[in-house]
């Protein structure tokens, strides 16, 4: 059976860890006595305690509120730019299109860690070529972080949208041109409506990635003391699991993150599905 390797890998590296997370989230350590001798620390059932604690955790909510602000910025700017660039590349009136396409896609080849690191240096007051702005201050840091994600993600999304645009038969535009429509009108009235499924797809993937933001804030932390170790929900999971060693609440928190990303992506799909069109890939 040709599917056997995929199924075995799925069970081992997807199903088993998910199940184990579920199991851990229902457990806790019980300390008896002073918690010193052997056997004084036991794992016991905790029921839904960890999950309710995770949902009620103020630190986690503070993380969510930061990520919502950051995510809204990233999604709007990144997808807006990606759509704009894709439409411009697709229009007949552009020179140097090949150069621009390659240049804008280039950041996709740069790992998130390296992107954050490069921008981190560009933000540093002692090195920045753009003076006068405190990029790493408490208010600006969200924008600075969003900029790293926009920089890294625009090209990929642009290419997805552009590839979809190229697949639209040219004859659609001819008809509009004969009717006297300008390039701008064609872009707004013909191209964008036809692109909606691709826009939805890129939005959902970007949403999922944003909910899980980890690399950028983690890498920018050494540059700035305004980013806490629990800046994003995922960073809190990491800290709980590996710094403070509380696996059980880390498991519960990661389930909350999974639930949020599922609700957000399906909620988004429902909203847009109800709106303009009947079919989402």
């Amino acid at each position: 059976m040709f599917l056997a390797p995929a199924i075995v890998l799925f069970l081992l590296f997807f199903a088993l860890p998910i199940g184990y997370t579920g199991y851990l989230s229902l457990r806790r350590t019980k300390v008896s006595g002073l918690g010193l001798g052997k056997g004084s620390r036991q794992e016991v059932w905790a029921g839904a305690d960890n999950l309710t604690a995770a949902v009620a955790d103020g630190e986690l909510w503070a993380g969510w509120s930061r990520v919502v602000g950051y995510g809204a910025l990233v999604l709007v700017v990144m997808l807006g730019l990606a759509l704009l660039f894709a439409l411009l590349l697709d229009s007949a009136h552009v020179r140097l299109a090949r150069f621009a396409r390659i240049a804008i896609f280039l950041p996709y080849a740069v790992p998130g860690v390296v992107a954050s690191l490069l921008w981190g240096f560009l933000y540093l007051p002692s090195l920045t070529p753009i003076g006068g702005i405190d990029f790493l201050g408490a208010t600006a840091v969200t924008f600075s972080m969003a900029n790293v994600a926009v920089w890294g993600g625009t090209g990929f999304n642009m290419l997805v949208l552009y590839t979809n645009l190229r697949a639209i038969p040219r004859s659609y535009y001819e008809a509009a041109r004969i009717d006297g429509a300008s390039e701008l009108a064609i872009a707004l009235r013909v191209k964008i409506p036809l692109l909606v499924p691709a826009i939805v797809l890129t939005t959902v993937f970007s949403l999922i990635a944003t909910v899980q933001v980890f690399t950028e804030p983690t890498t920018l932390r050494p540059f700035s003391n305004t980013i806490s170790s629990t800046w994003s929900p995922l960073m809190k999971v990491y800290r709980d699991a590996f710094v403070t060693g509380d696996l059980y609440s880390a498991a519960a928190t990661s389930l909350v993150i999974a639930a949020v990303s599922l609700v957000v992506s399906f909620g988004f799909l429902r909203v847009v599905r109800g709106r303009a069109f009947g079919e989402v890939r």
Binding site: F13, F14, L16, P17, I18, Y20, T21, L24, I208, V211, Q212, F214, L234, V237, Y238, A241, L247, A250, A251, S254, L255, I257, A258, S261
Partner: peptide, 9 residues
């Protein structure tokens, strides 16, 4: 599935 739900376990 968020990567962290997988990576920690």
């Amino acid at each position: 599935v968020p990567s962290v739900v997988l990576a920690v376990p």
